[in-house]
């Protein structure tokens, strides 16, 4: 502790080393009881197949982040071996933090190829891809992929965040791309950042068609009969495609099978509407009505 910090010890209303409240006090006991009335959220179940809960991935990853600051300094530090342990330029900073590499990229849209070079300097094969996405996903990290040995789980974080590591959109003031990768990652990995699609361009990552700014914005689709949703789809002049949802079980994800429009009955149930390209949506449906929405985790069911 420095002199300054010793002086600082006199500042706070609760002196260092002293506790604030007592857990035996009435307010503390009431709080404990009220908190524990709710069930804790079950651990997120990893989707077994291609799709399950992908929309939750970014927000959950962001929720799990702890706040960190930003250190910027032009440097390339050697750790004694061949590769550098950190890299920094005005656009990108990569630092070794424990078992991870943490990259902070100020303007990921700008000349993104040079970012691969920065990762190469610390021995990682990372690619940043800029892909066309629906309006509600522009400026967000939409997906990430890794080449790892079978059975190996790769724990990473990738999101556009602000100084307090809250999710924001690329282009907003102070918003940067944060990547956390295991330092022992050996295969290629890639991250996709969403850009506005050109007219007619198919979205790289389908979006929620009911989100603000999308083709079915504000429409109620989740758990509704196909007939009702189709009325809204026609009213808005959209083209439509279908996919059959095959649920694995509540909270366990699902898979999708192709489905021709003439196979779908009006009494089937819509669980999600995805935007495909401007003016085109895809409805994810089941023949039977379920008592939960299979597209979402059981703890986060959509409102409509």
């Amino acid at each position: 502790m420095t002199d300054i910090e010793i002086l600082m010890r006199s500042l706070p209303r609760v002196q260092p080393g002293r506790p604030g409240g007592r857990p035996s006090d009435a307010g503390a006991r009431t709080l404990l009881a009220s908190i524990m009335e709710e069930e804790p959220v079950a651990a997120v179940v990893e989707p077994r197949r291609r799709y399950g809960f992908r929309r939750l991935a970014v927000s959950l990853a962001a929720a799990a982040l702890l706040a960190t600051g930003i250190v910027v300094g032009p440097s390339l530090l050697q750790d004694g071996g061949g590769a550098a342990s950190s890299y920094a330029s005005s656009e990108i900073e990569i630092q070794r933090e424990g078992d991870e590499y943490v990259a902070r990229i100020k303007d990921p849209f700008a000349d993104h190829q040079k970012f691969s070079k920065a990762f190469q300097a610390v021995g990682l094969d990372v690619e940043l891809l800029i892909v066309p996405v629906p309006p509600s996903q522009v400026g967000l990290v939409v997906s990430a992929g890794f080449e790892t040995e079978a059975g190996v789980t790769t724990k990473t974080t990738s999101a556009m965040v602000d100084r307090d590591e809250q999710v924001c959109k690329a282009g907003e003031k102070g918003c940067y791309l944060l990547l956390r990768l295991p330092a022992d990652l050996t295969g290629r990995s890639w991250f996709k950042l969403g850009r506005q699609a050109r007219p007619g361009e198919t979205y790289d990552n389908p979006g929620r068609a009911t989100a603000a700014g999308e083709d079915l914005a504000g429409a109620e689709v989740h758990g509704r009969p196909v007939g009702q949703v189709m009325t809204e789809v026609r009213k808005r002049g959209l083209t439509v495609a279908f996919a059959l949802v095959e649920p694995v079980g509540p909270g366990k994800g699902y898979s999708l099978a192709p489905l021709a429009a003439d196979q779908v009955g009006d009494d089937w149930t819509v669980w999600e509407a995805e935007s495909f390209s401007a003016g085109a949506v895809r409805l994810l449906v089941t023949r039977e009505h379920l008592n939960y929405n299979p597209i979402y985790g059981t703890d986060v069911q959509p409102e409509s």
Binding site: S10, G21, A28, L31, S34, I35
Partner: peptide, 30 residues
Amino acid sequence: SNHRRGEVRRQARSAELDAEMADLYGNSPD
């Protein structure tokens, strides 16, 4: 951090807890 930006989900207020916290504010630091 979220609280400073007014973005916090609040637990139901408890008058008792408020009062107990207020006790900590009674003694101004030197």
